[in-house]
Simulated assay, not measured.
Amino acid sequence: MAYPLLTNCPVCSKQLKITKLQCNHCQTTVENEFEVSKLAALGQEQLHFVEIFLKCRGNIKEVEKELGISYPTVRGKLDDIISALGYTSQKKPEVDKKKIVSLLEKGEITTEKAIQLLKEGEES
């Protein structure tokens, strides 16, 4: 029975190095320092989420249905994984709808510009 790859030390929680690989068929052994992919650092729940996300071809609505969770929860899990992989999530700033309406009422922006700003807010 094979066990999942440990990536962190069970004693101090620091990252482990893989130093030995062995073939189950011919018993050839290779020793050195080997790198693992960034995905190896993800927990089981995060890897499951990534699998579902890929299965759904990145369609967040489909991920919602598959996992039975809300859109904000999907986005939150995705942001957590992005962070765990060492990347920064490029969140767009929250659109202030009241401010857009106020600017429109004052005549400081056109209707077309207001619609554009509101649509940009929906995409984030």
Rank of each mutant, 00 (worst) to 15 (best):
M1I: 06
M1H: 10
Y3S: 14
P4D: 09
P4V: 04
L6D: 04
L6K: 06
T7P: 01
N8G: 04
N8L: 10
P10Y: 08
V11I: 14
S13P: 00
K14W: 07
K14H: 08
Q15C: 00
K17V: 01
K17R: 05
I18E: 02
I18Q: 03
T19F: 11
K20V: 01
L21V: 07
Q22F: 07
Q22R: 12
H25R: 11
C26I: 12
C26G: 11
C26V: 13
T28S: 10
V30L: 15
E31L: 04
E31P: 00
N32M: 05
E33N: 12
E33P: 00
F34I: 03
E35D: 13
E35S: 09
E35L: 08
S37Q: 13
S37M: 14
K38C: 03
K38E: 12
L39T: 12
A40M: 10
A40D: 10
L42P: 05
L42V: 09
L42C: 13
G43E: 13
G43I: 06
Q44M: 12
E45W: 07
Q46N: 09
L47H: 02
L47W: 04
F49P: 00
V50P: 01
V50M: 15
E51M: 10
I52V: 15
I52D: 04
L54M: 14
K55S: 08
K55Y: 13
K55T: 02
C56T: 02
C56I: 01
N59M: 07
N59E: 11
I60H: 06
K61D: 05
K61P: 00
K61V: 07
E62F: 13
E62L: 14
E62Q: 15
V63D: 01
V63A: 02
E64A: 03
E66C: 03
S70P: 01
Y71R: 15
T73R: 12
T73A: 14
V74D: 00
V74K: 00
V74A: 01
R75Y: 07
G76W: 09
K77G: 02
K77V: 00
K77P: 00
L78W: 05
D79S: 08
D80E: 13
I81T: 02
I81W: 01
I81V: 06
I81L: 05
L85R: 01
L85K: 02
L85E: 06
L85C: 08
L85P: 02
Y87L: 14
Q90V: 03
Q90M: 06
Q90R: 07
K91E: 11
K92S: 11
K92L: 12
K92H: 11
P93F: 03
V95P: 00
D96F: 04
K98Q: 14
K98T: 03
K99V: 02
I100C: 03
I100F: 09
V101M: 15
V101Q: 15
S102N: 12
L103F: 12
L104G: 05
E105W: 10
E105H: 09
E108A: 11
I109F: 10
T110F: 15
T111A: 12
T111Q: 14
T111F: 12
T111R: 14
E112A: 13
L118S: 04
E120N: 13
E120D: 15
E120A: 15
E122V: 06
E123Y: 07
E123N: 10
E123S: 10
S124L: 13
S124G: 14
